[in-house]
Design a protein around this nucleic acid. Structure first.
Length: 472
RNA sequence: UCCCCUGUAGCUCAAUUGGUAGAGCGAGCGGCUGUUAACCGCUAGGUUGCUGGUUCGAGUCCAGCCGGGGGAGCCA
């Protein structure tokens, strides 16, 4: 019982090669329209491309009255018939059905959650199991896949190796935010040590373990052998953050390159993003056209401009000066601007949305606001860190050159009150054949937001996990 | 975690200063048409998120709880 010819194939093949052929189309009915001239029209979608395919059903079919006229939005069907030139406008080809089998009915059409009408994204989140059947989410599914494959293709073509860094980590030293605990202990009856603390020695791994917040530390080890590596997988943050750009479970691309500095890192970020967006424009033109028409009319222009222009690069110090100049001209910010501050959302927005008008890379931040592993610059007060800021989204990439000098790294660990012993294998990389290297993390969902003009990360991942929300 | 907004039919929303609910879309039926966001007519559909309070009377006011959204922080 194989599926029918993919509808994408019907649209990508020359019409002449299809006309006159008898074949099958399988999918879900988007709409049914009847003509009392004795025919019905079914728009059948199988998700292989944006467009549905029109099936013309003559009333002569033996199940026309009994079944075809009862077909509603959402029914699963198998249609067999001859491909003919369409007599109507709006499509070149259509199927003249010789048989229509209703494979799956809609139990109660009146309460079917995915009716043939516009739905709000908020509503669709409540029916995440059915929302893939909508135009928008079908398009997002194909776009997400396209970008995923483009990540791997870009990396592969540039000599990178995909490293499957662990999801579970027993290192309590990743540093970036709250972590989800992984445990097999009986929560109702926790083992205690003599001090009354939970005895994690009895836990599955014999120590505390968590879900990873980043594959970076692990992937650095493989970078120090295979030179060009990356991770691409889920990461987890137990932060209680409730915004349109945060998820508790999200996907991240993390390249790491050896014999490289921050400038090489920014070059890589630029080349990769351009490749991703160029691929998207080429391979999912149908879906992007939809986003342009219904979601964000500027999305295609934005990507085309991005692909054709170079990154705007800016030193942190320059960014501060630009903000101070804006203040001098009367621009108001809630948070005061001075050298040394971490940029607030409003500051980032100003830089990328107002000052530059497209993504901007801010480089070399004050050391006190950045992580221990970022490389100390010669000025002694900044580190080789970079953030790529995008309009409407904020930070889409965070990266840095890593500190490859053991003494400097140790100083930083001490300065930040971290225990060297916890980082023994990370420090080993600096003891044995250490090398300048750099990398970054690209937020995959935020990238999709930027590309499509969607406004909320919960809508660009199939099953969003956020505080208090893990249905489905 | 903090601040703001919000919760009425399957969905999107309306309901004057508190007087016990309406429309559009969707659905069902009928009409019309090679239709395509089809169109026209009729019909069905609601214990107004939950609990309590004020009042002669609560969708409307108050308190608590639950859910949704936006923003902040954290970051990707």
């Amino acid at each position: 019982m194989p599926a029918g010819t993919p509808i994408a194939d019907l649209y990508s093949s020359p019409p002449d090669s299809l006309i006159g052929r008898t074949l099958e189309v399988t999918g879900w009915v988007r709409t049914r329209r009847d003509s009392k001239a004795g025919i019905s029209f079914l728009q059948v979608s199988d998700g292989s491309c944006f467009d549905a395919f029109q099936v013309v059903v003559p009333s002569e079919l033996e199940n026309y009255e009994s079944e075809v006229l009862r077909i509603t939005t959402g029914c699963a069907v198998r249609c067999r018939g001859e491909v003919v030139e369409s007599r109507g406008k709006g499509q070149a080809l259509e199927m003249k059905a010789a048989g229509v089998e209703v494979v799956g009915w809609i139990e109660d059409p009146d309460s079917y959650p995915m009716q043939a009408k516009r739905h709000s994204f908020e509503y669709l989140r409540e029916v995440a199991h059915l929302r893939p059947r909508s135009n928008t989410f079908g398009a997002l599914g194909r776009v997400r896949h396209c970008l995923s494959m483009a990540v791997h293709r870009f990396m592969d073509e540039h000599g990178f190796h995909w490293i499957h860094t662990p999801i579970i980590t027993a290192n309590d030293c990743e540093g970036a935010g709250e972590m989800f605990r992984v445990s097999t202990l009986d929560l109702a009856n926790l083992p205690r040590d003599e001090d009354g603390a939970v005895d994690f020695g009895q836990d599955f791994f014999g120590r505390e373990s968590h879900l990873t917040v980043s594959g970076q530390l692990n992937v650095e080890t493989w970078c120090s052998a295979l030179s060009k590596v990356y991770t691409f997988g889920p990461t987890f943050r137990a932060e209680n953050s409730n915004t349109s750009r945060h998820l508790a479970e999200f996907w991240m691309v993390e390249p790491e390159i050896a014999f490289a500095d921050l400038s090489d890192d920014a070059d890589l970020a630029e080349a990769m993003l351009k490749y991703l967006f160029r691929t998207l424009l080429e391979e999912r033109a149908d879906d992007m056209r939809f986003f342009q028409e219904r979601v964000d009319e500027g999305c295609i222009d934005r990507l085309e401009t991005f692909v054709d222009s170079s990154f705007e690069r800016m030193e942190y110090g320059e960014a501060i000066r630009a903000l101070e100049q804006a203040v001098a001209k009367g621009r108001r910010f809630d948070f005061p601007v001075s050298w040394g501050i971490d940029l607030q959302s409003e500051h980032e927005r100003y830089l990328t949305e107002e000052l530059v008008g497209r993504p901007v890379v801010v480089m070399n931040y004050p050391k006190d606001i950045k992580a221990f592993y970022m490389r100390m610059n010669d000025d002694g007060r900044t580190v080789a860190a970079m953030d790529v800021l995008a309009p409407g989204i904020g930070e889409i990439i965070g990266g840095s050159q890593r500190e490859e000098r053991l003494e400097v790294l140790d100083d930083r660990l001490e300065e930040m009150g971290l225990d060297k012993a916890d980082y023994w294998w990370y420090r080993d990389l600096r003891r044995y054949g250490t090398v300048p290297h750099a990398g970054f993390g690209l937020g995959f969902e935020r990238t999709i937001l930027y590309a499509t003009g969607m406004a909320n990360v919960r809508d660009v991942i199939p099953f969003p996990r956020t505080p208090n929300s893990a249905e489905f």
